[in-house]
Structure formats: structure tokens, C-alpha cells
Amino acid sequence: MTEWKKICAVSDVPVLGSRVVESEAHGRIAIFRNSTDEVFAVRDKCPHKAGPLSQGIVHGKTVTCPLHSWKIQLDDGQVVPPDVGCVKHFPVKVDMGEVYLEL
């Protein structure tokens, strides 16, 4: 059974920025909002050197890790080639201006 957890209002996530939430089961989760108000969620840990993705630069549907510039696709957690790897991605929905995560 799917469990959606209300996290925050969309307006609480800065445009081209992030907000971090703690999950007992999953650790730090970064919630991102891009320039077209799409919202994404991934584990806040780059697969390269564990950099805090929440401090990265958001562009389109990608975030660039602040440590070594690895690019992570926010819609599925995959690393952009030529680098390889992935981060855990969390399904997100927005309803009535509120962000929900599937945990």
C-alpha cells in the first residue's frame, strides 16, 4: 500500500533550490523545485563522494553536486554520463499546493 506523507507547501521550497527533510528510514531527503515549479525528491547524498546535493545548482530536471560537479537527474536519480551511478529517488506529488512524498 502506498503511503504519501505531507512534507511542506510548494512555496516552502525555493525556486531553483531545495529543502531537506529527515526520514528515519531513508536519512536526509532533498526536495527540489525547478524554474517551472516541478518538484522532485532524492536522497541528499551524491554517489561520487557523498556531497550534499541539496546545496547543488538546479537546472532543468538536473542538480549539479557542489563538490565535484556530477550531474544527477532529479526525475529518476540517475547520474548523467559520462559519470555513472544513481541516488535513491522518491516519488513526489503536489496536491492543492502541498508536497507529498511516497515513503
Rank of each mutant, 00 (worst) to 15 (best):
V92M: 04
E22L: 06
D76G: 08
V21M: 06
A50H: 12
D95M: 08
H68K: 05
S18T: 12
L53K: 12
K45Y: 06
T2W: 01
G27A: 07
G60E: 04
C65P: 07
Q78F: 05
K45A: 13
Q73K: 11
L67Y: 15
A41H: 02
C86D: 12
E98Q: 15
Q73F: 02
W70M: 14
E24H: 10
I57A: 10
D95W: 04
K88L: 10
L103E: 11
R33Y: 02
V79I: 08
Q78I: 00
I57H: 10
F40K: 03
M96R: 12
A9S: 14
Q55K: 15
E102H: 11
W70S: 06
R28Q: 13
V84K: 14
G60D: 09
S18Y: 10
S35I: 03
D44E: 12
L74T: 05
E98C: 08
P66T: 04
V20Q: 11
K93W: 00
D76Y: 00
H48Y: 11
K5M: 06
K6F: 00
P66E: 06
Q55H: 14
K5L: 07
V79P: 03
G51Y: 07
E38S: 09
D75N: 12
P91K: 03
S69Y: 13
D95E: 15
S35L: 10
H26K: 07
H59G: 03
V87Q: 08
G85E: 06
R28A: 14
K45G: 04
K71T: 07
K6C: 11
H59T: 11
W70E: 05
